[in-house]
């Protein structure tokens, strides 16, 4: 009976989600159509603003070329995101375990986050060279702060009543961290990952602007030098798709593997 109810409620909850996705898709298609119409009607030159059909044509005719560069940027972003996630979570855990250190560390982290980190892109090239390392480092720098700050926030989200239970049942510190603090922190960590997913792509592309032999940032710069605006927009469209895909994978992981930790919290 409960299973039937559960299946029924799942179907009901999927229906509005499907409808929303359909509405968003129709909205995007409508916007693209409107853009095509406006650019054609106003006869805007292609080097200023190409029509969506011209951008699509570039992508179709050079699909493997663009996919290669998407791959380069995505790898840089993924490496940066993974590094920043591991490092950010470790730093957050260390700060949370040391009583009172939050008061010192939090303002410091927030202050560093306020620095325009993208300005460091040329420095990263100087330090790590024009290859993967400098791009991953740049992506990682942008992801580190949301990951660390969100994890700290999550580890502080244990409600007072749950802390009481830890004391009442005399749960050792590590076990309390594993069984109580970490599950409470997971939704915050996942939120940090979602924010970081797009930050990682931005970091990798900005680092490619500063100097690279491949990737979407490199492609955008090269096309800009040639005043090949349809190719610039084609690279921008691909970077948007890569970001959405990246974000989507994280959301799917969150809902499937970690669903029980994020439901109801």
């Amino acid at each position: 009976m409960n299973q039937q109810l559960s299946k029924g409620s799942n179907a009901r909850s999927l229906w509005p989600q499907g409808m929303n996705a359909l509405k968003v898709t129709l909205g995007i298609v409508g916007l693209i159509g409107l853009c095509e119409m406006v650019v054609r009607l106003l006869a805007v030159p292609a080097y200023i603003l190409p029509t969506p059909s011209a951008i699509a044509s570039v992508l179709v005719h050079n699909s493997s070329y663009y996919l290669h560069h998407v791959g380069v940027t995505t790898i840089e972003a993924v490496v940066g995101l993974l590094g920043a996630s591991v490092f950010g979570i470790i730093v957050a855990v260390c700060i949370s375990l040391k009583t009172g250190s939050e008061r010192l560390a939090l303002p410091l982290l927030v202050a560093i986050q306020a620095v325009p980190i993208v300005a460091l892109a040329p420095v990263m090239i100087l330090w790590f060279g024009p290859g993967l390392a400098s791009k991953a480092a740049m992506a990682g720098l942008l992801c580190f702060f949301p990951m660390a700050l969100n994890t700290i926030k999550g580890l502080r989200a244990v409600p007072p009543g749950a802390k009481d239970l830890i004391v009442i049942y005399d749960i050792p510190r590590f076990a309390a961290f594993r069984t109580v603090a970490l599950p409470y922190a997971l939704p915050f960590v996942m939120a940090g990952l979602r924010i970081s997913a797009s930050m990682a792509m931005i970091g990798a592309i900005v680092a490619e602007y500063a100097g690279a032999n491949g990737g979407l940032g490199y492609l955008i710069m090269q096309s800009t030098y040639r005043v090949d605006t349809p190719s610039v927009f084609a690279a921008i469209v691909m970077s948007a798709f890569a970001s959405w895909l990246f974000y989507g994978i994280i959301v799917i992981c969150e809902h499937t593997a970690l669903g029980r930790f994020t439901r109801g919290q």
Partner: peptide, 19 residues
């Protein structure tokens, strides 16, 4: 005492772990 004889505690806001 709580190492050997557990204490039971329930508060106004029931703290149940959501996961």
């Amino acid at each position: 005492a709580r190492r050997f004889h557990p204490i039971g505690l329930a508060a106004q806001e029931p703290v149940l772990f959501p996961w």
